[in-house]
Amino acid sequence: MADNDQVDEKKLSAAARLFDVRRVIGGLFVVYGVIVTVVGIFDTQAEIDKAEGVRINLWMGIGMLVLGLLFLLWLRLNPPEPPDPSDIDDERPPAD
């Protein structure tokens, strides 16, 4: 039994690490940021004119890239921990 529980816990925390939402958001926004920035660099005058003269692809691309990197940085500085058992039963009424 004890062995099983340990294996389960390991599996759970591996899965938790894999799909920590910060990694998902960070990853997607880095990719979007790179794509949109590259599009922005090669924007034609017609496209810039459509956006009222704002180089919106360039700015939004850089913005999304920075946001994505911030999420990945946060993940790195503060990695997910397995749930603390005391956390879970915190402030519950006594068991009935």
């Binding site: 949109v36 922005g40 459509k50 956006a51 692809n57 691309g61």
Partner: peptide, 10 residues
């Protein structure tokens, strides 16, 4: 009316 391809996709 306003969004060029790229941010339009987003």
């Amino acid at each position: 009316d306003l969004l060029p391809n790229g941010v339009l996709g987003v």
